[in-house]
Design a binder for these strands. Structure first.
Lengths: 107, 107
DNA sequence: AAAAGATACCTTGACAGGCGAGGTATCTTG
DNA sequence: CAAGATACCTCGCCTGTCAAGGTATCTTTT
């Protein structure tokens, strides 16, 4: 059974930023990489993914540009900004704290 | 700064069950105990708490009864059911897995 | 050559959980 | 007597997820 989306909520943006912190990427690939790394136990549905992109863009955490592939489907690439890296760091820290706090309650 | 509610989401029911697994309790006290244990970094807003109770009751994970205090405000107590204990165990297991998976993505 | 499947993008509308704001009633303390 | 703590509750908004639908291109199979 895969991870309930309510347990992921609050981490999707961070997960996307984590992916982009390594290299520019595009929606489809980000999803594939996440599924590969988690043995398909975490999957961002594409509607979720794209609404996250809109959010991140709006907040200035990522920028976007179209790829120049000559063949195949067009790709919209995303790039993490400096502000995005900062947010990523903060999100990770908050996640660490949240983990700890929740664990302290679940005996 | 306290923990963002989106990071808690998916764990509120589990947190309440954890509290009830130790002893019968009531809304106000559960909240106080959570705040004490987490130095007020986790707080369930009472609207959140009561909607969670409704949910848990509906699913048969808790039962409820009115306290018989002679003085003071009336208290509605909650008691975890056998089914509730099972759900609690499963939720904890899923949380462990989710933690691990998310950590594997946040480098 | 047509069909099927992978790659790759996108929008709409419904749904669920969290919570701000509002309410009620009792008791204790200054 | 007012203020604050205790203790319960509901309504309606907001936000993130996602099922369902769509478009377009390329590759593989039939």
């Amino acid at each position: 059974m895969s991870i309930a989306s309510d347990l992921l909520r609050g981490n999707t943006d961070t997960i996307i930023l984590a992916s982009l912190a390594e290299h520019d990427s595009y929606g489809y690939l980000i999803n594939k990489e996440i599924m590969a790394k988690t043995e398909a136990q975490i999957e961002l549905k594409d509607a979720t993914l794209y609404s996250a992109f809109r959010r991140l863009e709006k907040e200035g955490l990522v920028t976007t540009y179209w790829g120049d592939e000559e063949v195949g489907a067009r790709r919209r690439y995303y790039s993490i900004t400096e502000k995005g890296r900062e947010a990523y760091g903060q999100n990770k820290a908050e996640w660490q704290k949240a983990k700890q706090m929740i664990d302290s309650l679940l005996v």
